[in-house]
């Protein structure tokens, strides 16, 4: 059984004008430990794909399962609980909370965990910040950090819960080439430790970092390229 199973995923947005078919039937299976890149031109449905995979937006139809759990059959607040336990998000523009320090931002996913002491949460967050090379910037507010540092804090926040799957949306989009490479190396390192990653990007240079690249066009998979040999052994 694949770690991520997507079958006939469709999404149509109904606005004032004509309905917009963002996704027109995606079928995909991703193995655990894969570094998957999702690429495509603007309007191809990449962000919608990631939103649905992240349990943030209900699909119009289709089936999405992560680790055997059917996402959209989870009722009530269990989808929020699933996001907390299974997913880590790295957003395009970092989306750090401006009034919280780097350490507090990293602790955010742990804030609603009841059976964990504040000291334990702080220790966990410090460890992850150390891992991304920001152990000495814990007390800084996002406005006091560079773009690359903010991105690292966002990655640390995604990691702190030790989620089985990390979803990243254009994480290098607003970074210079050198910093972007450092960030991609960080993701690569995480992946080498067994972390499953799905990254949406429009930058063709990032393609070399992925095990597998899925190209989207007009809401459909137009290409599915497995890069055997260059990266880790492809599982599927």
């Amino acid at each position: 059984m694949a770690f991520i199973e997507i079958a006939e995923m469709k999404k149509t947005f109904h606005g004032d004008g004509e309905p917009v078919k963002a996704l027109q039937g995606i079928d995909l299976e991703v193995a655990e430990g894969t570094f998957l890149g999702v690429m495509g031109p603007s309007g191809s449905g990449k962000s919608t794909f990631l939103s649905i995979l992240g349990g943030l937006c209900h699909p119009s139809s289709g089936r999405i399962a992560i680790d055997g759990i059917e996402l959209y059959s989870l009722g009530g607040e269990r989808l929020a609980d699933f996001r907390r336990e299974y997913l880590g998000f790295v957003f395009q523009s970092f989306n750090l909370v401006p009034y919280l320090t780097a350490l507090e931002n990293v602790m955010l996913p742990l804030a609603v965990k009841k059976r964990m002491s504040t000291a334990h949460k702080r220790d966990e967050a410090r460890q992850v910040l150390d891992r991304v090379g920001l152990g000495k910037r814990c007390g800084h507010l996002p406005s006091q950090l560079s773009g690359g540092e903010q991105e690292r804090v966002a990655i640390a926040r995604a990691l702190v819960n030790r989620p089985p799957l990390i979803l990243a949306d254009e994480p290098t989009g607003s970074l210079d080439t050198v910093t972007a490479t450092e960030i991609m190396q960080l993701f690569r390192g995480l992946n080498e430790e067994g972390q499953t990653l799905v990254m949406v990007t429009h930058n063709p240079e990032n393609r070399d970092w992925f095990h597998r690249t899925v190209m989207l066009r007009d809401g459909l998979v137009s290409d599915d390229c497995r890069q055997r040999g260059k990266m880790q052994e492809e599982v599927i």
Partner: peptide, 12 residues
Amino acid sequence: EIGVFRALGFRR
């Protein structure tokens, strides 16, 4: 910001 909270697993 509320969207981030929700994405990180905060309940309503």
